[in-house]
Design a protein around this nucleic acid. Structure first.
Lengths: 128, 128
DNA sequence: CTGCATCCTATAAGATACTG
DNA sequence: CAGTATCTTATAGGATGCAG
């Protein structure tokens, strides 16, 4: 069940832009891919900790889609308690330039939209 | 109403990837931006022709969001019949590397997902 | 620990008709 | 030509509980 839009409609110029976005455009896929890109290999709960607001259900779901698209690999260790590792496939690795482009632009420009969250500054703390 | 996710939650590493995706991740925004990137300036109905499957409502909606995010500019000519031109803003132009990265990856890899739609080959025709 | 099943809500997207 | 308005459907996303 590939989710690439309407492949038989003679993918017009620019359509491949959307195709790529369809693959990585889920609410969490970008971060997941980015984390796997930098950390190489991560277990389920490690990913969960790195994505503080994601629900278990969504993490599983997004991982399964990425796996189904061949971008990540899932390795199950038949132990108890269970242990599952996720990493990028070679194919997934080819997304590196895309992810980095997205991150670079975001780093440079999101402050325009978030009304200045000064990343190089001390995080404002709530005083106890 | 910026749609960047949870800016006050101390945007963790990789979060900006999602932020960028939120801006350009609509079903049609990628193509719209790509078209404006290559054609410079386009009228409403020109965009509509370039995006054969988009509805009028969605085109308007996506254009308004892109405009609200400062990525494109809308120029209305007070004529009759009406004439409206869309183009990228300088800010929108900064997305060029991102869009090109998305397109390059898509061009190189979507055939994996669309089960070979040979773009350099003659389109298979239904015989009349 | 990892994950599936169920139920539910919010948002995106589409169809269609009408207008300055 | 370039929209708006209304209604409907589809999909994404979330909360919670159970299980190997």
């Amino acid at each position: 069940m590939p989710r690439i839009p309407h492949p038989n409609f003679h993918c017009a110029a620019g359509c491949t832009v959307e195709a790529t976005l369809t693959l990585i455009g889920g609410k969490w896929k970008g971060v997941i891919l980015y984390r796997l890109l930098t950390e190489q290999v991560l277990r389920f709960n490690e990913l969960r900790r790195l994505l503080p607001n994601i629900t278990q259900r969504m993490l599983t779901h997004q991982l399964r889609e990425l796996e189904g698209d061949g971008l990540i690999a899932r390795k199950v260790y038949p132990e108890v308690p269970p242990k599952v590792e996720y990493r990028l496939t070679d194919y997934g690795q080819t997304l590196a330039p895309v992810i980095h482009a997205l991150k670079a632009w975001g780093d440079a420009h999101v402050d325009r939209h978030t009304a200045a969250v000064p990343s190089a500054t001390v995080v404002p703390r709530i005083q106890p």
